[in-house]
């Protein structure tokens, strides 16, 4: 475990030496938190002011939508964004992690150290997870705490941190999904010969989440047990991916 943590520590240290990378990641969270914040607070203010609420409701009705459906869609989108950003970011960073060792020329020296392949993959994975997870906790936590008490969104508060299932999803499910996406990324990265292969994986992760894995949350929005099953399943699959990946790169890996 000590060696795994050493790999993770160096990965984090390298990321900390690239403040622009962290800035852009934080900016991503800031943009969607600010966007949803403006929307939610704006809507709340509008709906409590009859002269603004009436035309808004009329416009929705003209478009065949109910206010409830509209708020459900928005709050669900907020949850999905919060949930999927972490696995997407970790998947992309991990997708380049072992490749980074190859391009630095450090891989042969890691292979000479008494370090198993799964320790290497797990270390890279944990290192890729650390900083994005801190940002995830900060922004998603802040979002949940800010929006959950808005009176006009009370009906939908379970999608804004008002239900234990939401916290299980974001505190356990999202990092577990990130481990899964990251472990697959680390394996792809170790098989890649240059960044183009890894970038295809990034594309795959984005597409996968774009297709709606995060929306699975909706089906279990108020079901703690199901969220726990999702988290445990993702973590288990991540462990399996690391073990299979370690086998895949066990021969002539440094060359």
């Amino acid at each position: 475990m000590k060696r795994t943590l050493r790999i993770a520590r160096t990965e984090v240290l390298e990321q900390l030496r690239q403040p622009w990378m962290i800035f852009i990641l934080a900016l991503t969270y800031t943009v969607w938190l600010t966007g949803f914040g403006a929307l939610f607070f704006g809507l709340d203010a509008a709906l409590t002011t009859p002269e603004v609420a009436q035309p808004l409701l009329r416009q929705l009705a003209d478009n065949g939508a109910s206010l409830d459906a509209f708020l459900k869609m928005l709050t669900s989108l907020f949850g999905t964004m919060g949930f999927t950003t972490l696995p997407t970011v970790v998947g992309i960073v991990s997708g380049l992690a072992v490749l980074h060792e190859r391009s630095c020329g450090t891989l042969p020296f890691l292979m000479l150290a008494p370090l198993t392949r799964w320790q290497l993959l797990l270390g890279k994975l944990l290192g890729a997870l650390a900083i994005p997870f801190v940002l995830h906790l900060t922004f998603v936590g802040a979002g949940g705490l800010l929006f959950v008490h808005l009176p006009s969104l009370a009906e939908h508060s379970h999608r804004l941190g008002g239900h234990p299932a939401w916290w299980v999803a974001n505190l356990l499910g999202a990092p577990a999904a990130a481990l899964l996406m990251g472990s697959l990324g680390a394996v792809i990265s170790s098989l890649s010969r240059d960044a183009r292969t890894s970038m295809q994986y990034a594309n795959f992760v984005v597409a996968l989440f774009g297709l709606g894995i995060g929306l699975l949350l909706e089906a279990a929005a108020t079901n703690v047990a199901l969220q726990l099953v999702y988290a445990a399943g993702s973590a288990g699959l991540a462990a399996l991916a690391v073990l299979i990946g370690a086998q895949l790169i066990s021969t002539d890996a440094a060359v």
């Binding site: 240290l13 630095c104 020329g105 450090t106 891989l107």
Partner: peptide
């Protein structure tokens, strides 16, 4: 031939 070090460290 390549030193194989992390350039940012």
């Amino acid at each position: 031939a390549r030193p194989g070090l992390y350039p940012l460290l």
